[in-house]
Design a protein around this nucleic acid. Structure first.
Lengths: 162, 162
DNA sequence: TATTGTTATACTCTATAACTATA
DNA sequence: TATAGTTATAGAGTATAACAATA
């Protein structure tokens, strides 16, 4: 196979599915980070807000475990989100060691914006495909994620990312 | 939509194509890193070896530019690869400032192993799909990479990764 | 004694900027 | 003066471990 790269005709290695996924996954993650960055958030923080919305009152330890983040990192992020009035820490009455996390009204509103941004991201990223093609692509990708035992909706990289 | 996560029945956000790509891209990159790690290499180093094989005699600056890496990082990597007898630096006769990079015989042999490892990676990652499904998936993914202007065979993340 | 949340610290990584040798 | 390669360094980020409060 031959093609133009860097202005020079060069041998292009036949790119397989795995490498295409690596390329597109990085691209998708970067673009999503840009979009939520406009809301003052990082992708891991978005994951936290979603998790808190899904399971209000959960502890920081549980949150860290579910998202694969370090507990010390969770402290920093919650400090930030709490300082911006998006999340509240409440000492549990049953175990005064734990801080129960919940979204404020403002946090809930921001999550709505996040959902809108995510929808824009999805639409923008798949622009080149028509509805039918997207559906077929989605079905194939779901098959792959299941075969790799990836948890639905959980980014596998929160343990190392920002 | 509802499903089991973390042992608890919870609301799962409908995962779109963009997020599935993020998940799978991270997974593919991680698994590839593990495989080439067994050869003592990082993915960026693999990219360097491939680039040097494609364009023997290129300078470190050109290599850095093409792969989106910092020149100072290239120095470190080439130090390593040269120390292991995989790559040679030769002062250019036309411009004694530049170091022309070439693969040694050993480097060429290692690149053969890398190609084998990449093939195993591809096969292993797509195990859940039959030949026909892989071809259709590949075609759809190629459409997406083209629509996003991604250069064939070039990982977009070498500028930040290890 | 074990666990939650927090803080401190050591370690790694990245990016920038100096520095040399050549042009 | 500008550029290729190198080295040094400052800043950021990560993971580990120490710590106080509570169980």
């Amino acid at each position: 196979m031959t093609g133009k790269v860097f202005g020079v005709t060069a041998e292009i290695p036949k790119t397989g599915v795995a490498f295409l996924l690596t390329q597109l996954g990085t691209q998708a993650a970067t673009k999503f980070a840009e979009r939520v960055g406009a809301l003052g958030l990082t992708p891991p923080q978005v994951g936290m807000l979603r998790m808190i919305a899904t399971r209000p009152g959960l502890s920081q330890q549980t949150l860290a475990g579910n998202l694969g983040m370090l507990p010390s990192k969770v402290v920093t992020f919650v400090d930030d989100l709490e300082g911006r009035g998006l999340v509240t820490r409440t000492r549990s009455t049953r175990d005064r060691r734990v801080h129960e996390l919940t979204l404020t009204e403002e946090g809930t509103e921001l999550l709505d914006k996040i959902r809108a941004v995510a929808a824009e991201h999805e639409a923008g990223f798949c622009q080149a495909l028509d509805t039918d093609e997207r559906a077929r692509l989605q079905a194939l990708l779901e098959r792959l994620t299941e075969s790799h035992g990836l948890a639905p909706g959980v980014h596998p990289g929160y343990r190392t990312i920002r």
